[in-house]
């Protein structure tokens, strides 16, 4: 682990955010807990090599995401749909907000959008990272992150509107 940072402080600062990210990806409390623990185990092993303390947060989220992808690759064949990123979609109008969403409903909603868009959207809404950091964590270009956020939010709005219509 990084020499100038205490392990306990790192855990205290980031375990909640990491768990939220893991839970949003897995929708499973146990898997999210395992992923969060595994991330810190890797940090305990490899954290020494992080030279810049300001990079620790991104490193942890990157590590958690890679661990998640490894699990995905073993359980199914991921099909990343690479869309033409240059084409701009006209953003849809935001739905009128009349209620609050709980954690489970939010995660359910996020998991209904295409996998390609879901991960950047989750990181966007967790608000822990700039879009540049999101690009680094997901290992995709910055322009692609912005495109996926835009498309993902369009899907999310449509899903939310449908859900609201059903409730009514």
């Amino acid at each position: 682990m990084h020499r100038s940072l205490k392990f306990e402080d790192i855990v205290e600062a980031y375990y909640t955010g990491l768990y939220r990210f893991a839970f949003s990806l897995t929708k499973n409390e146990h898997e999210a807990g395992d992923l969060t623990q595994q991330t810190f185990f890797v940090y305990a092993r490899k954290g020494d090599s992080i030279r810049d303390p300001s990079k620790v947060k991104s490193w942890l989220f990157t590590t958690l995401y890679r661990e998640f992808l490894k699990i995905c690759r073993k359980t199914k064949s991921l099909t990343f749909k690479e869309h033409e990123e240059l084409e701009l979609d006209m953003p849809t109008a935001a739905p009128k907000i009349a209620s609050q969403l709980d954690a489970a409903s939010t995660v359910d909603l996020l998991n209904e959008i295409d996998e390609t868009y879901r991960d950047p959207i989750i990181l966007f809404y967790l608000q822990d990272h700039s879009y540049k950091e999101i690009a680094a964590i997901l290992d995709i270009p910055i322009g692609t992150v912005m495109s996926r956020i835009s498309r993902g939010k369009n899907q999310l709005r449509n899903l939310f509107t449908k859900q609201d219509t059903k409730v009514e």
Partner: peptide, 25 residues
């Protein structure tokens, strides 16, 4: 804001931090 608040309301299970600390250091 609505979506962000939904995600921020995810809370880690009790004892997760302690388990991490016990297991890793």
């Amino acid at each position: 804001t609505l979506i962000s608040q939904g995600l921020q309301s995810i809370t880690p299970p009790a004892g997760l931090k302690e388990t991490i600390l016990q297991g890793a250091t």
